[in-house]
């Protein structure tokens, strides 16, 4: 007991020391590492990313190669997750397919965050009429549920990884921009902004060097929490036949194929579902932990 206390005290001392020396980012990292549930989520995410990037290392099968003789083999030694309706190895298809799901999710998150930053910081910084115009536009964008917007856009653009990314990111813009706007508005009143203006820096320069660096924490929180939802939307889109389409392996489209054989062959339904759920689970846990670490006020 005393040892634990000692350790905690030492840790706390280290923490304050570190805060003084290396600034707040080190402290955030310490808080993050100490969150066990969050670390579990992070490990899940990292494992998935490694599995998907290094897919050829983890399977000897080609996700595209068809061998109709081998179709619908149940999980066994040769095919650990079984094979699909064309005799392709399901495990290989799932880990190769993860590349699309994860890449699109990250891409969409980046894109919507950038757009959100742009709109939100302009609205929050300038205020007045610009703000009114942008907020009204966001109101309109938010009246359409994000999945529905993604469906409408991707049915217009057609399928394909890039179009899917674009379609999905549209739904995330409004939320990010709103958050950004409120953060920038709270920063705008500070003295250092006034000082920057007084020393003659332009609006663009003030936003880039004095406003944006102070909004990084909420931005990271917003982005990390939206990845799970994005993966959900991607697989949903692919599931109904928009998004990424066969033969490209994507979790949602594999699941859509599995649905046709739902009565007779369970692995084609259960394993893609598991992959989708575990990925979202991991990113949700990690996102929550990141939020707690970056903004301890929220937790207390």
């Amino acid at each position: 007991m005393t040892r634990k206390k000692q350790r905690d005290e030492k840790l706390a001392a280290n923490l304050t020391e570190l805060t003084r020396k290396q600034g707040q980012w080190r402290e955030v990292l310490m808080r993050l590492v100490r969150n066990k549930v969050g670390m579990f989520g992070a490990i899940l995410c990292i494992a998935l990313v490694i599995l998907c990037i290094g897919a050829p290392l983890f399977t000897k099968w080609d996700p595209y190669e068809q061998a109709v003789i081998n179709k619908f083999i149940y999980p066994g030694r040769e095919h650990i997750f079984g094979t699909d309706d064309f005799g392709r190895d399901l495990w290989a298809r799932l880990i190769y397919g993860g590349r699309y799901s994860l890449l699109i999710a990250f891409g969409a998150t980046c894109f919507s965050t950038c757009m959100g930053v742009l709109l939100g910081s302009i609205a929050g910084y300038f205020g007045g009429r610009t703000d009114l115009l942008i907020t009204r536009f966001l109101d309109i964008l938010q009246a359409i549920p994000s999945l529905l917007l993604a469906i409408a856009i991707s049915s217009a653009l057609g399928s394909g990884p890039f179009n899917t990314m674009l379609a999905i990111s549209m739904g995330g813009i409004a939320g990010g921009a709103r958050m950004m706007r409120s953060v920038v508005m709270s920063i705008r009143g500070n003295e250092y902004i006034e000082a920057a203006k007084a020393t003659g820096s332009s609006n663009a320069r003030t936003i880039a060097t004095h406003v944006l660096p102070n909004t990084i924490a909420p931005l990271i929180i917003n982005a990390s929490l939206s990845i799970g939802g994005n993966i959900m939307s991607i697989s949903g889109l692919s599931f109904i036949g928009l998004g990424v389409q066969a033969p490209t392996p994507e979790w949602g489209s594999i699941l859509a194929v599995g649905k046709t054989y739902i009565r007779d062959f369970w692995p084609l339904v259960v394993f893609p579902s598991m992959f989708i759920a575990i990925t979202i689970f991991g990113f949700n846990l990690f996102g929550d932990a990141l939020r707690d670490a970056l903004d301890p006020k929220l937790k207390d």
Binding site: G236, F239, K259, V269, A277
Partner: peptide, 15 residues
């Protein structure tokens, strides 16, 4: 709750 939040509706439906 955490597990359910990680399951999109259609995954839950299919399972």
């Amino acid at each position: 709750a955490l597990v359910l939040a990680a399951m999109p509706g259609f995954v839950l439906a299919i399972l």
